[in-house]
């Protein structure tokens, strides 16, 4: 399990779920109840689980429009800064607007190679 889990991105660690996990792990490390290596294992498991769950359990479709402010493609990672974005989920008709949204996107190919 440990080896293939290296094939997952760690970008979701920057989402709220990952940040919450990292903070919780940091606390446990600070209390010396777990060592950092174990925390890293937890995080790699998290990378795998969240990627699989998003892939398999989530069905929602999203469309969004906006004006692209900045784009960047580096190391197979797209970064977009979009202004005046309007998001629309297909299940509910309600729209969500945001002044600017940063999109960090990794290639989906790597996941399939695993």
């Amino acid at each position: 399990m440990a080896n293939p889990s290296n094939n997952y991105y760690d970008l979701y660690r920057h989402g709220s779920l990952g940040v919450a996990l990292t903070d919780a792990l940091d606390e446990l490390i600070g209390q010396e109840r777990i060592d950092p290596q174990l925390a890293m294992k937890v995080l790699t498991q998290f990378d795998r689980v969240i990627a699989e769950t998003l892939q398999e359990k989530v069905k929602a479709r999203l469309t969004f429009k906006g004006s692209l402010d900045t784009y960047r493609f580096c190391d197979e990672v797209w970064t977009f800064l979009i202004r005046n974005v309007t998001f629309k989920l297909d299940n509910g008709g309600q729209m969500v607007n945001a002044d600017k949204v940063k999109i960090v996107s990794c290639s989906s190919k790597k996941n399939e190679e695993k």
């Binding site: 989402g15 989530v58 479709r61 429009k65 004006s67 977009f80 979009i82 989920l89």
Partner: peptide, 27 residues
């Protein structure tokens, strides 16, 4: 620009959304 994105987590206006597929069009 036209992007087809998938397996995403979106945090906007203090709320979080998950999606399986997203299409974005922007100029």
């Amino acid at each position: 620009w036209k992007c087809i994105l998938k397996d995403g987590v979106l945090t906007v206006n203090g709320k979080e959304y998950v999606f399986h597929k997203a299409t974005g069009e922007y100029e």
